[in-house]
Design a protein around this nucleic acid. Structure first.
Lengths: 232, 232
DNA sequence: GTCATCTTATGATATTTATCACAACGCCTG
DNA sequence: CAGGCGTTGTGATAAATATCATAAGATGAC
């Protein structure tokens, strides 16, 4: 990991405290956060590299990342995207010595890094915290599994529709989306070729379902897009 | 859930104690297990139905199950298979009010059912148990995610090879496998049509890679099967 | 035992998707 | 500003996969 800069900030005031540490008292928070380091990454930076040893507990403070994996035939697969309040390092953090996935910034992104040993200690000592974390872990993985199953059962058009709706509803909460990924990355996410992603987007455009201005996409006919995502 | 019968057995002696409860002292074990019920299911029985409320913490004692999900176009998707020591209900148990998946016995199967509230209480009170559970949950979900990604990047032959190797190595630990699933269920697992699963198996047979006797499959040329799974 | 039903099986054909080839555009760098 | 390179875009063709049709075993109900 090569951070671009290093900041100090107070865990007590951190917005994410409500997510991870709401049940942690100030002594425990002090303990966990004494080792805390905040890092800033620029778009394109690798935050975690697949295969690296896991020593830290990492969570997103701001920005957007993709979780990717190198296949044995040299291609990339994108597992999921994550924004603040979603998990990042946590996915394999308790079950593996090394990261199974890389995490790459799709936008300027800041993370907080805690010593994993301290987090584990807090799990031991604070049942509410443990339970809280269990819920988040379960939610995050469940969502990835369900999403992957959804994508797998759909055809090209349905998959592209799915990913547009995903960004619109889940990431941007708007009909206007500033795609944070290239067509190739969409392809790596939904398991099809770049050419076919482009072709499908062109078709949506021709059919008046979306309008595109480079990376900016405006979803004009959400009803139809949903129907395509669902039935073909 | 409609159990076929009900047994009593001692948690203290249970083999699975080493998995879930090794760090639990006998008082806690008493508490957790006081509500325990053991159920037996026959091949084909539905153990958990997608959409049901989650009230229990369930784990497999013996047998084999599939985790399935109904797609909106009426088809079934198989997420994964699970044998004893793998998780079952745990997948969504901490993040959802209702089960996201059904669990169906592929073989005569017995399960233990604990009151979820008691398990949660033990998580609160016993840090070792909480940590232990976190690790298992993380392992189980990680495996499902990795496996699904692997399947997704492969072509038909690679997928069928993958699933044969999976049953051989992971479930049966032998070159001789007594397929516990139909060709259709394989198709539902790896996302292709039943016809093409059958066709691909026929081809493997013709090429001398496997021998088949109904549901019995003998992997003759594991090296070649691995190569197909990997490269096509 | 026999009828109905499901699974396995195979072939022909249609559809979906990938591959290859090429061009235009933007963007960065020297 | 020129050149290189990655991304977007489109078309023709090849390859992969699904669909449809049909039939032979298997299996279970009565």
């Amino acid at each position: 990991m090569e951070p671009n800069s290093k900041y100090e900030c107070s865990c007590v005031e951190c917005k994410l405290k409500t997510l991870f540490f709401e049940k942690v008292d100030s002594n425990e928070l002090e303990m966990v956060c004494s080792s805390k380091i905040e890092y800033q990454f620029k778009k394109g930076d690798t935050i975690i590299r697949e295969g690296d040893f896991i020593n830290d507990f990492i969570y997103l403070k701001s920005g957007l990342v993709k979780l990717t994996r190198q296949t044995s035939n040299g291609k990339e697969q994108i597992l999921s995207f994550a924004k603040p309040f979603d998990f990042v390092s946590l996915l394999s953090v308790f079950s593996s010595k090394r990261y199974n996935y890389s995490v790459i910034a799709l936008d300027d992104t800041s993370i907080c890094l805690l010593a994993l040993a301290d987090v584990k200690k807090t799990i031991h000592e604070n049942g509410d915290f443990a339970m809280n974390l269990m819920v988040k872990l379960s939610e995050a993985t469940d969502m990835i599994i369900l999403d992957n199953l959804e994508i797998r059962r759909k055809h090209l058009k349905g998959r592209v529709a799915h990913v547009l709706i995903y960004f619109s509803e889940y990431i941007y909460k708007s009909n206007m989306i500033q795609l944070p990924v290239s067509r190739r990355e969409i392809a790596e996410y939904i398991g099809m070729t770049t050419e076919n992603v482009i072709r499908t987007l062109s078709e949506f455009k021709k059919d008046g379902i979306i309008r595109t201005f480079g990376k900016d996409i405006d979803i004009v006919d959400l009803v139809r897009l949903r129907s395509i995502s669902e039935h073909g």
